[in-house]
Design a protein around this nucleic acid. Structure first.
Lengths: 218, 218, 218, 218
DNA sequence: AATGAATGAGCCTTCATTCAT
DNA sequence: GATGAATGAAGGCTCATTCAT
């Protein structure tokens, strides 16, 4: 079932081939610059197939977004390796690392990162679904972790600001990648690099959170 | 003198009108989705004016980027209110606040924020110039501040990671604005709001930096 | 079979209609002055059809050239009516007459003449193919005839000069037609007229060739 | 007076500069492909100068044609080196050589050849003037020479056909130059080459004319 | 007499979409 | 289900020409 989505196999349907090809094309060039011809050529199907299976280009894009996000969340769940008895510190570190992996995964077929970055910069109607089904739950989960640090009396603005501080540090590497690549050409994103970056963000954030927690209690 | 660049008054030239109109259109729709016809209609000039004054759409876009960035940097310089005798803390706080103001300025005609966000997500050839003339100097300036905290023995990776942590927290509000608006609809970006956010990022970052500085010295 | 190429009948395909219409338009106005709109209007097809069937205007033009030249060479082959045992004189006369017919054929749909004349005066990249596949073989064939008159010891410059003299006399009526029409308005180009002109060129050339052959042997 | 036309001198007027520049541009690219911008750039004058001095592009072209033809006829008159007592053979040879020189002159600023070739392939209204004032007198002069060979009883069609045979041989090198350059890349058009070609055309034609003269008398 | 700015028409091309098989 | 052909709407750009000085 799930395998069919990723492994095309011999019985791969036209619809499935389109989805895979479109994901890559949209991720690389964005919605507007991608052409249906590019997609169907890569998928080795007919020009009319997109309109037949997805009604139009916009709908295909929308499906691609869901498809890509679903895959990545299965691959790197937010609570990666966390057990019921884990400390807040362990939960936070796991959250940060899994976020890094999701957002900067370089393995072939992982187009989730660039896709989401584009969607932020230039939102389409597909964003609404995304927020409701994925982003909001993710944010709530992070807030629940932060509340363990900041205490139950922490105000919503403080929680949100801290969540933003954590997530912002990570997304920076995604959203500003073109600039980073120019300023710091040697920076790579292998698994070990991401672990190092995640460690830094964890330490930086932990200190920040604790300082604010102390301030909030005072 | 400088005012003439922005407000050309009644003798506003076609070139200037184009620049102003194009800035807004590009900021709202991005380079690819914007059409020359939209721009010239808004500027109330002829289609051929773009070709005459800027050669082509790409060059116009490039000029718009320089124009917008130049304006905003004049309005909110990175060392805003800093004197020669200022402490590192004061410099850092000024840097963060000015960055927030630049990136999230809501005053009419301030299209710098969305423009840059799009350029990050979908870089054009104009990005190269931008990096060399604006972004790299800005990064160097931040690093010089951070070095005052981290000491002269701090490694380049540590400096870069800290700089990324600081800047990432700020840019988050820009690059993820569509999502933030949905998750936290009450958040506004008036001057006072930005000062509050800047204060948070400053405190959060200061704690993070100091923790890492201590670790580095150990 | 072959007829289908020219007369597609009621099931005439868009591609064929474009080819026919484009031939006439290009012949009458030249490549640069002809517009795709003129062509598709005449062919009663959509603007995008040119791009779909021929990629662009230049390729369409190139195909038109091949099409027109192929048709006319089938209609009037260079060795028209020549048998294996024909004398050099008969071969030369046949060559001249067929050349006249090809170049000045007035029957409807015979746009080969003006098309080639324009291509000479204002060559496009399509000329290269033409020379290699059509013109050079034609020239070689004429040279082989001339060699029968001039002997195997005739130098290449002499052969080329004589070939030029023969062909030049014919092409004059094509390339200078606008001027001839003004200087000699009664001159027409029906079959019988062309036969008379061909007879003149044949006699004129035969005398010229024989004189030079005598000179060469001496 | 005449010098002003050719020698720009220090007091060269805008009009004159335009004429010189336009001649070259039109000769190289044809009327349609030449742009006013190219011409004014080469002439180092303002864009509006063409419309100011010549009303429009077409009129400028017309003036260029007259200008170029006038120059070349002065340089190489049809009766070059012929004296009252010259024989018909001498007159014919002089006519052919001067025609060759006029049509294939390679010296800088001699754009008459390509200009006329284009005008033949794609006549404009400027051709009428040309025929009346230049081409017809030239044809009459050639006919008068031919009549000395063919006798006063020669019919007009015969005279015209012979004139065409002579002129056609020469113009071939002009009108088919692109093809000749490909088929015979070593052929050059220095003065000595033209004299050799003229000699060939003269001998070839002389034999042809004499043969037809004999036939006409019989 | 001459200029730089500005104009509007038009051209080639591309693209998403639909039609007919 | 699936395909190749065909469509109409723009889009970027170029060009000759005119306007205001």
């Amino acid at each position: 079932m799930v395998e069919n989505v990723i492994d095309a196999g011999t019985t791969e349907r036209t619809r499935q081939k389109l989805l895979v090809a479109a994901t890559e094309v949209f991720a690389k060039q964005g919605f507007k610059s991608s052409t249906i011809r590019q997609i169907v050529t890569k998928a080795r199907v007919n020009v009319a197939a997109v309109n037949y299976h997805f009604r139009d280009k916009a709908t295909l894009y929308s499906e691609v977004l869901k498809f890509a996000l679903g895959s990545i969340l299965k691959k790197y769940p937010p609570d990666m390796g966390v057990t019921p008895g884990s400390t807040p510190e362990q939960k936070l570190e796991a959250f940060i690392l899994s976020f890094f992996l999701r957002v900067l995964d370089q393995s072939s077929g992982a187009w989730h990162g660039p896709l989401m970055a584009r969607e932020m910069a230039d939102p389409t109607s597909a964003l609404d679904d995304l927020v409701d089904h994925v982003l909001r739950p993710l944010g709530d989960y992070l807030n629940s972790i932060l509340r363990e640090f900041l205490g139950s009396t922490a105000t919503a603005p403080l929680l949100n600001a801290c969540a933003a501080s954590v997530v912002g540090q990570i997304l920076f590497y995604r959203h500003c990648q073109p600039v980073i690549a120019k300023l710091n050409p040697t920076l790579t994103y292998r698994r070990e690099d991401l672990e190092r970056l995640a460690r830094h963000v964890y330490e930086f954030s932990l200190a920040g959170i604790r300082a604010l927690a102390a301030g909030a209690r005072r």
